[in-house]
Design a binder for these strands. Structure first.
Length: 639
RNA sequence: GCCCACAUAGCUCAGCCGGCAGAGCACUUCCUUGGUAAGGAAGAGGUCAUCGGUUCGAAUCCGAUUGUGGGCUCCA
């Protein structure tokens, strides 16, 4: 970045941009006056704690008929226990199924085992599934008679949908097994005996049709597999996920904690902060190298800013607000609008662009209490945000560079990014021709970069086509982390950003919003689960523990530690009274990459015996050689 | 926010049908100076989340509050 001067400019950005991070979902920003408020809110309040669930939309599994059949069998069992139960829906889902019920009382764990028992009886009876088709009116009457208003509603909706699409009345199909009949499109397995090993997992509240204004039903989740081995593997995966849960590991590894006094905001302990700083330092190094300039903008901002950006009308409830001297302020939930003030602080020339402004902004969002979840769904988080202001002719090369940045930084963790290109949605702001051009440039950049990507038509933000980045962790779960959004209108137009072109005319720049880690909080949560707490050497909070065998070795241990520290190694000495075995055990539990054992033999040779956390024992190595090796390993940033 | 569950020592958890608050780990002290995942002994540590109610008596029963956890349109 060289001769960029800064310039005046304007700008603001959109909220959604940063959404990739902590919040993942949609992006939309607030500013779109024409948008419907619900839609806008969606980006604000990401739907789920873990993106994995969101991203893995259920996509047709050969086990689906069996899973859906299991849901029927479960509904049958529930009806036997609660004859007045009203049935919601009971689809097959990823790894299993659920069914929603309206019941006279809350279900208990005992109920679940009773239901399971009846299900087993049904499976043992091997009752065939029988399909029947009814005239719509007859079908409707059937469910009215059975006291199943939700089924009637579904039927009515189907008929209404068909009518409005100009299609003929839909045929109503039911499936029966035993004495249980359900409205159902099918298909099913031939008989209940074909249902594999299953287990009921949990009960949860679920709004009818996901609408908080509709009744709250009770949802029972279950899982079912083709054979016992698959079921066992699934159960193992769940348990492994629990073992890797970043909330548990965060405590065990002394990284962070949460406290009543600030729900949804982590307290970072020294080790967690060390990890954090290491990640941030690596990203800063990359950004320096790639021509970014770091900025910092206020956390407390007048509501005037959000009124100008358009966020206030739709987003106000999701911001923390406060009053001072008669003015209303809020804690910023996103960085973008403020970056435009820096852009506009002077006149910008075409020579200034691309202007890459990075900011580790501390953001606050007033997430509803019920959705908070460890580090993945928080009220306070830091985003490795950047706003890049470019000329239209620079979009392609800039996108290409960004894809390279994502690939490079994720390689530090051995993570392979997956790219999803979201194109123009139905409701989009801005000139369609500009959209087409931007999309073409993005597609070309994706092609040139040679990365694998998929296209999600209509999934762009309403003001910008975007590239979302997902990663798959060690358990095969997908997480959304990074996002790149090409903002054609939001920041540039609402904040009237300009630059002077070669001929002295004012032109409109394009703003690219991007976050690579996304939210540092969330990213650390994902890394913790991915590595099960055993972070790669380069970013491990404690990289090595020196283990003196007896107390007479403590002085040498301190000397070795000082030598390593001087080379930038994060090292601790365990000079407690414990036996060596115990010291090693504790270091293993803390997932420290290297244990450096020092006894008489080593000290005499000014060497040290290295044990890795994988359990390997290496031959003694000289202190200097070890320092060289560790410094080189840290610099390499390998997973 | 809503439904359900949970909240006991720093951590993990016992504590039945109300009757003097427990264990392991961690911590402190002492003994032990030991070669690759737990050496031994003693000690300290709790307003049983908070507030209120029932009761002779509440960690225990009831209610509220706060926090945490599982979820909240993969549409018959």
């Amino acid at each position: 970045m060289s001769e960029q001067h800064a310039a005046p400019a304007a700008g603001q950005a959109d909220p959604a941009a940063r959404s990739g991070a902590a919040t993942a979902p949609s992006a939309s920003a607030a500013a779109a006056p024409a948008m419907e408020s619900e839609e806008e809110l969606s980006f604000i309040a990401p739907r789920r704690g873990s993106a994995e669930e969101m991203l893995d939309a259920h996509a047709g599994d050969p086990l689906d008929p069996m899973r859906h059949s299991a849901a029927h069998v479960m509904a049958q069992a529930v009806l036997e226990l609660f004859p007045d139960a009203r049935l919601g829906i009971g689809p097959a889902i990823r790894d299993g199924f659920y069914y929603d019920f309206e019941l006279p009382r809350p279900l208990t764990p005992d109920d679940l085992s009773a239901i399971e028992e009846r299900m087993r009886a049904s499976v043992a009876a091997n009752q065939p599934f029988v399909r029947e088709e009814l005239e719509p009116d007859a079908g409707r009457q059937f469910f009215v008679d059975r006291g199943q208003p939700y089924k009637v509603e579904i039927l009515d909706d189907l008929r209404a949908a068909a009518a409005s699409a100009g299609e003929p009345e839909p045929v109503v199909s039911t499936y029966q097994h035993g004495d249980f009949i359900d409205l159902c499109r099918g298909p099913h397995v031939e008989s209940t005996g074909r249902i594999g090993p299953f287990r009921l997992l949990s009960v949860a509240g679920a709004y009818w049709r996901g609408d908080e204004k509709r009744p709250m039903l009770q949802r029972i989740y279950g899982t079912v597999w083709a054979n016992q081995e698959d079921l066992d593997r699934f159960i193992w995966r769940r348990e492994e996920a629990k073992r890797r849960d970043h909330r548990r590991l965060g405590l065990q590894l002394d990284l962070f904690s949460f406290h009543d006094v600030s729900p949804g905001s982590a307290f970072w302990h020294p080790k967690g902060q060390r990890l954090w700083r290491t990640l941030e330092t690596a990203m800063r190094e990359l950004q320096e190298r790639r021509g970014y300039q770091e900025v910092s903008t206020p956390i407390l901002v007048s509501k005037k800013l959000w009124e100008q950006s358009g966020h206030w009308s739709h987003y106000a409830d999701d911001m923390f607000k406060l009053e001072a001297e008669g003015q209303t302020f809020s804690l910023k939930p996103m960085n973008c609008p403020e970056s435009t003030f820096i852009y506009r602080s002077r006149v910008r020339s075409y020579r200034d662009l691309p202007l890459r402004l990075a900011e580790y902004g501390r953001l606050h969002r007033n997430e509803r209490s019920g959705v908070l979840h460890g580090l993945t769904r928080v009220r306070h988080f830091v985003q490795d945000d950047a706003h890049i202001f470019v000329r239209p002719d620079q979009i392609g090369s800039e996108i290409e560079a960004l894809l390279g940045e994502v690939t490079e930084s994720y390689s530090w963790f051995g993570l392979e990014p997956h790219f999803t290109f979201g194109t123009r949605p139905e409701k989009a702001l801005g000139d369609p021709a500009l959209w087409d051009r931007a999309e073409t440039l993005i597609r070309e950049a994706l092609e040139r970069s040679g990365v694998q990507y998929r296209i999600k038509p209509g999934d762009g933000a309403f003001y910008a086509p975007k590239i979302d980045i997902q990663i798959e962790d060690a358990l095969g779960r997908e997480w959304q982390t990074a996002t790149i959004q090409v903002d054609l209108v939001m920041l540039p137009e609402r904040f009237d950003l300009t630059y002077v072109d070669e001929e002295g005319h004012l032109q409109r720049p394009i703003a690219i919003h991007r976050a690579i880690y996304g939210s540092l909080e969330r990213f650390i949560g994902v890394l913790t689960e991915h590595f099960a707490g055993a972070f790669p050497f380069w970013c491990a909070p404690v990289q090595a523990v020196v283990v003196p065998i007896a107390s007479r070795h403590n002085d040498s241990a301190a000397e070795l530690a000082a030598l390593l520290r001087a080379r930038g190694v994060r090292v601790e000495v365990d000079d407690s009274d414990s036996r060596m075995q115990n010291k090693i055990r504790l270091a293993q539990e803390q997932k420290v990459p290297y244990m450096l054992v020092l006894g008489d033999r080593e000290i005499q040779a000014r060497s040290v015996a290295v044990r890795t956390r994988a359990g390997a024992q290496e031959p003694p190595i000289g202190w200097e050689a070890l320092a060289e090796r560790l410094a080189a390993e840290a610099a390499a940033r390998r997973p």
